[in-house]
């Protein structure tokens, strides 16, 4: 890494110019392409970033206008009722009709019984069953979730709707006032199963399930970032 005779060929200098933003747009793009593959080059960039950061102390702090923070929060989180956590706002539409629960129960029995044709009386041996129909208000999205407490497994079947193009559906479990816990991205096929985290199993009967619209791969933050499309409460069967 000793300085070479030709500064243009010195990667360390090129990295410094890149950090300073002295490269022309085309050079910058070419450098960034190399950066993606060249780990040592990336370290040079990080090294110069740290070195130049000594000058940060020369920058005077200026208190931004109050409007800046408000505007930021609106841009990020939307307006007004944002002070109320998402999972509490869900309460507004938790009122599921009895009919939809009964219908869901019917389907749940079929789903659970189909594989092994287990007669209903055998269920006591297998542990309690719980179900939830996670549905949009307008029924444009419906997902049936059946939980078998013996297996600790939540069986998911999508019965209506799908993710928007280029987006995914992510399933969340909400226990009481706690923050939503991700149960994962719903499979595109519409059917799948997840193992319920240990901590949630004891409270499964009071659990709320919700489905949110997320970018591919699921929420990048660990909390729902897109619109909550469907909500349902878990009931013991």
């Amino acid at each position: 890494m000793s300085p070479t005779a030709d500064p243009a060929k010195d990667d360390s200098l090129l990295a410094a110019e890149y950090v300073l933003r002295l490269l022309r747009p085309r050079e910058e793009r070419a450098f960034e392409r190399r950066l993606l593959e060249d780990h040592r080059l990336a370290q040079q960039v990080a090294g110069w970033t740290a070195r130049f950061s000594g000058m940060n102390a020369e920058i005077a702090e200026i208190t931004p206008p109050r409007s800046a923070k408000k505007g930021l929060q609106t841009r990020l989180f939307g307006k007004v009722e944002e002070a109320v956590p998402l999972w509490r706002r869900l309460g507004l539409w938790q009122g599921l009709s009895f009919a939809s629960v009964a219908l869901a129960a019917f389907f749940a029995m079929q789903i659970v019984q189909m594989p092994g044709q287990t007669p209903p009386q055998a269920q006591d041996d297998r542990g309690a069953l719980f179900l939830s129909e996670v549905a949009a208000e307008d029924q444009s999205l419906r997902v049936l979730a059946v939980y078998d407490s013996a297996a600790g497994r939540l069986q998911i079947t999508r019965t209506a709707g799908a993710a928007a193009p280029g987006r995914v559906l992510e399933l969340w479990a909400i226990a009481g006032e706690n923050a939503p816990v991700s149960l994962g991205v719903l499979p595109e096929t519409g059917k799948g199963g997840v193992i319920l985290p240990e901590g949630l199993r004891a409270q499964v009967a009071g659990l709320t399930l919700a489905i949110s619209d997320e970018p591919p791969g699921g929420s990048p933050t660990g909390a729902p970032t897109g619109a909550v499309l469907a909500v349902g409460q878990v009931t013991r069967l």
Binding site: L35, L36, H39, A42, Q43, V45, A46, G47, T49, A50, R51, F52, S53, G54, M55
Partner: peptide
Amino acid sequence: RLADRGPTPEQVAEAAGEAGRI
């Protein structure tokens, strides 16, 4: 990239010393 490919802790310590010297 800055976030993904940060330097090692040793490099950071080294760079921090350099930062003070600039």
